[in-house]
């Protein structure tokens, strides 16, 4: 089984857990004490990834330290539909948004770590670059809608959507609201409605997907 060095509050680790859940892959999760223990900077983890970041994915002799590569690996093994097809524009768009996702990590992810876990950073600059990235993503989704496509690279979800979704959905954790981005909010709902979707802390259940329950009552 693939082994994921995982932290429950890390949006990058969540990308891999989410992709695995959506494609039906079972992962062996090894919890890393990122906070407060800083275990990712300890000798055992640095031996696997000198960059000191998580997630880390191990499968046999394959060792991956970049979450986008992990998404591609999971998709290629279990659900090739989530990769780009043969269309040149589609292939380019998948790459475009996979690369772009790094900017979300640096900006919105940095703001979130600063506001939540007290990590150092220039919060105003992080938020400003986060807002700039959200505006690009919003325009990208508006254009996709005009092309009749519901997701970032195609009319089906791909690894590009999973690479971008977590840091965007958790932007409010870093004090960056999502109210100004209607196309992002619709896209986010589409992803959260996919069969097999799982949440992480900070992303609430879409309770509307379940019908109103018949409540049990002990009262008269």
């Amino acid at each position: 089984m693939m082994k994921l060095y995982d932290y429950i509050l890390s949006p990058s680790c969540y990308k891999v857990r989410l992709m695995a859940a959506l494609t039906g892959v079972k992962l062996d999760l090894r919890a890393v004490d990122f906070h407060p223990g800083l275990e990712h900077r300890g000798p055992e983890l640095l031996a696997l990834n000198p960059a000191g970041s998580i997630p880390i994915l191990e499968d046999g002799d394959l060792l991956l330290t970049e979450s986008s590569a992990m998404l591609v690996y999971l998709a290629a093994k279990a659900a090739p539909d989530w990769l780009a097809g043969s269309d040149a524009q589609e292939a380019a768009r998948v790459q475009q948004w996979l690369s772009f996702s790094g900017r979300l990590t640096a900006s919105l992810g940095g703001a979130r770590l600063h506001e939540m876990l007290l990590r150092p950073g220039d919060i105003d600059a992080l938020r400003a670059s986060g807002i700039a990235a959200l505006r690009e993503l919003e325009l990208g989704l508006v254009e996709q809608a005009e092309r009749g496509q519901n997701f970032l690279a195609a009319n089906r979800p791909t690894v590009a959507d999973i690479a971008c979704f977590p840091y965007v959905a958790l932007a409010p954790d870093g004090g960056v609201p999502l109210d100004p981005y209607p196309a992002i909010r619709l896209w986010s709902r589409r992803l959260r409605s996919l069969p097999g979707f799982i949440e992480m802390p900070g992303i609430h259940r879409l309770h509307e997907l379940k019908p109103e329950p018949q409540l049990e009552t002990g009262e008269a």
Partner: peptide, 11 residues
């Protein structure tokens, strides 16, 4: 991580 999960849902 269990307790961090709970608290971050509240946050």
């Amino acid at each position: 991580h269990f307790q961090q999960t709970i608290f971050l849902q509240d946050r």
